[in-house]
Computed example of a mutant assay.
Amino acid sequence: MGQILRSYRSREHPGTAKKAEAHLGGSGLNLLINNARVMPESTLESATAADMLAMYKINVVGPMFTGQAFLPLLKKAEQKSTQTGLSCSKAAIINVSTIGGSIGNTPRLATFPVISYRCTKAALNMLTRCQSVTHKEDWILCIALHPGWVKTELGTAKAELTVEDSVQGILKVLSTLSEKHHGIIVDWTERTVPW
């Protein structure tokens, strides 16, 4: 599948893309996964401007700047590829999102009382859509991916998925992504998540 690199603070650490370029030895970057997750509890009554701005910086600004910083490497991988169509083996930006950011299928607020997180993940979904429109002419696949509600420190023991199940599902989905997924949100089972 090529090189996989995860980063979300490339603008704050401008050398990250340069280090990756040196490591890749001119081959370009096939797959960029933007994954950041900080989820402080906040409700409509308790959320503050500081909460919202901090989450926006992590969940939207970071992935946007990372996409900008690594775009030349993604374009290089696409140009060197002999494959046709869109895929993670050619060049792709995957933004890790959540069903909690879905406007069309919003989970109960009592279940996930994390307003600032949810709002910024909805904004990340729009960023993904904008990237898909802009980078289609560069043949760079752009999607948002919901990994599921996973049993982690942030996901809690109530979560429905083990880390292993989520990871196995994600790896399977990454291997099947194509033009039909460009610009949408899918989950770890490849189901489409409503915007």
Rank of each mutant, 00 (worst) to 15 (best):
K121V: 10
V133A: 09
R129I: 04
R108I: 02
S97I: 08
L145Y: 06
C142K: 03
C88I: 03
C142D: 09
T111Q: 09
T111S: 11
L124F: 05
W139H: 12
Q83A: 15
I115W: 01
S102W: 02
T134C: 08
T84C: 10
R118Y: 04
I93L: 13
D138H: 03
L145I: 08
Q83E: 15
T152F: 08
C88F: 04
H135L: 15
A123Y: 03
P113C: 00
G155M: 07
Y117T: 06
C119Q: 06
V114R: 11
H135C: 11
K151N: 06
C119K: 00
G85P: 15
M126L: 13
L86W: 11
N125F: 10
T120P: 13
C88E: 05
Y117D: 09
I94E: 01
H135N: 15
V96F: 02
W139A: 13
T128Q: 07
G85R: 12
A122N: 03
V133D: 11
N105V: 01
K136M: 02
C119T: 08
G148P: 11
W139G: 14
P107M: 05
L124T: 07
N95K: 07
F112Y: 08
R118E: 02
T152M: 07
S132G: 02
T134G: 08
A91V: 13
T111K: 04
